[in-house]
Nucleic acid binder design. Structure first.
Length: 492
RNA sequence: GGCCCCAUCGUCUAGGGGACCAGGACGCGGCCCUCUCAAGGCCGAAACGGGGGUUCGAAUCCCCCUGGGGCCA
């Protein structure tokens, strides 16, 4: 049996989005599961919207996700080039071939003429199909049009089909398309550029793709493409149409739904292994009743025929939860990686320089350990640990509740106690706090909460004593005094 | 409008004629733990869209309806 060859073929007209990445991931998973080859092809025939920057960004996002390709525009391969704009000669060759076989013909209809046809069909309330009036033009008539300066497009002959087109889809099962709904469609524009349904077929065949896994929005394109395979005498690859990922409003996930670009998730500090884990749970699920997986488990367990047919809704909460799980693992297994992740986020927030000294990295590592489970995504570092990197700014409600005339003397006493704590580490700090409270005859809570607000500006966050140790004696004492001063000034 | 696809808790899903008064997870609520917030533990509310068949028996098979989605125009 021939080895499996799958592909993903993005248009570089924007950043890699969730839907595309998910589709690519299933292609990749399947090829890895089967020991096959995964191809990346750039569909940049739409020159007005395609840019090199987007292409580079898409490649970069795939690398970040850990989705690697065996053949592609940057590394080449045996059936390249892998960029459609570099394959013009191939499309020209097969367009000619189709004409020679009588399977395609030039169409001289202008947009206005076609529009008129369409409106007539609409007025008569029948479904519009191209009339096919150019399919019978003889050489003289064509020459006349040419002499007029008309530039023909190229259409594929599909109207005379009598047999239904049967698509045996690996996830959808057998789908039958009746020939009377099929139309002669344009494969090459009058300016000579190939259309999607044409370039796609030529590329998939020439690149020896054995299985096309793509979104089901392409399902209706499939019969058209099958006609072309037939016309060229080619065997079509197997197809598998994935459902479409929907937003919360049940419409196809798009920019309207907020963040859809993979790099936006990267910027917020999502982990690629969490995103991939999450991807594996949409329209598919490994056999066990478990949700957290490592990549190698997913590769091992992936089964194309277990893919669901219903459209999943993108659930950000679940992604974030999964990210938290993987984040905990990452902190445990590779703290340095999380340090790098958070350093970037803190830098972009203006709290750290771009490059850190070894000491700064070590300190950030300690901060991350203290924040611990609270770090669901990288960005959370800003909510839970900003005060390690900037002066405190009291949250108004927090200050109103805890920085009061009642707590000020306790804070002052605690500042004095901390000044003498030796060594300055968590258990000694805790003992000092409890001693201050005992002497004042109050419950520890009466000082714990005000102290937290004094040191961090907030009511929620890491353990008070760990955080204090990490802040260091000097900053802790100064912040306590500052809070006392704040109360005094507020009283005036 | 035409064609095609889809349908189990709010969400992701398990289930494929009896194992199902439907299992897991996210989210939500409660309790425990606790210096706060998380994490963790325990408990809870929460679904087979409707109607017809087939069958001794249907979430599971068939048909219709409804709803949703995609593509084309």
């Amino acid at each position: 049996m021939a080895t499996v060859r799958t592909r993903f073929a993005p248009s570089p007209t924007g950043y890699l989005h969730i839907g595309g990445a998910w589709t690519a991931f299933f292609n990749w998973l399947h090829s890895r599961n089967q020991g096959g080859t995964f191809i990346l092809r750039i569909e940049d025939t739409d020159r007005s919207r395609s840019t090199e920057e987007y292409e580079a960004a898409i490649l970069e996002d795939f690398r970040w996700l850990g989705i690697t390709w065996d053949e592609g525009p940057d590394i080449g391969g045996p059936v390249g080039p892998y960029r459609q704009t570099e394959r013009g000669h191939l499309y020209a060759r097969y367009a000619q071939e189709l004409v020679k076989r009588g399977a395609a013909y030039p169409c001289y209809c202008t947009p206005e003429e076609l529009d008129a046809e369409r409106r007539r069909a609409e007025a008569e309330r029948r479904p519009y199909r191209y009339s096919g009036r150019c399919r019978t033009l003889d050489a003289d008539q064509r020459a006349a049009f040419d002499a007029e300066g008309r530039k023909p497009s190229l259409r594929l002959r599909v109207r005379n089909l009598t047999e239904p087109i049967v698509v045996d889809d690996a996830v959808r099962g057998r789908v039958v398309f009746e020939p009377e709904h099929l139309d002669d469609y344009i494969i090459v524009r009058s300016d000579g550029t190939p259309l999607y349904n044409f370039a796609n077929v030529v590329d998939d065949h020439l690149m020896r793709v054995t299985l096309i896994i793509r979104a089901s929005e392409h399902l209706s394109n499939t019969p058209k493409q099958f006609v072309m395979y037939q016309a060229l005498g080619w065997t079509p690859p197997a197809v598998a149409h994935l459902p479409v990922i929907l937003g919360a409003d049940r419409k196809k996930l798009s920019k309207r739904h907020g963040d859809t670009a993979v790099r936006e998730y990267r910027a917020q500090g999502y982990l690629p292994e969490a995103i991939l884990n999450f991807f594996a749970l949409m329209a598919w699920h490994p056999e066990a009743e478990r949700e957290v997986y490592e990549l190698d488990e997913l590769i091992r367990e992936f089964r194309l025929d277990a893919i669901g047919r219903a459209s999943p809704i993108f659930d950000l909460d679940k992604l974030t939860w999964l990210n938290a799980v993987h984040m905990r693992r990452a902190i445990e297994r590779d703290l340095d990686r999380v340090v790098t992740l958070c350093a970037g986020i803190l830098h972009r927030a203006g709290l750290l320089p771009e490059t850190l000294s070894d000491n700064q990295r070590r300190y950030l590592g300690d901060v991350i350990k203290v924040v611990g489970d609270r770090l669901r995504i990288g960005r959370d570092i800003l909510d839970y640990a900003d005060f390690f990197f900037r002066d405190v700014a009291f949250e108004p409600e927090a200050a109103a509740k805890h920085l009061t005339a009642a707590s000020a003397p306790l804070l002052a006493a605690y500042a004095d106690a901390l000044a003498g704590v030796e060594p300055f580490e968590r258990s000694a700090i805790e003992a000092a706090l409890r001693r201050v409270c005992a002497e004042a005859g109050v419950d520890a809570r009466a000082l714990v909460h005000p102290a937290r607000v004094a040191l961090t500006g907030k009511t929620a966050g890491p353990g008070l004593f760990e955080l204090t140790e990490l802040l260091g004696r000097e900053r802790a004492v100064a912040r306590l005094h500052n809070a006392v001063e704040y109360v005094r000034r507020a009283a005036v």
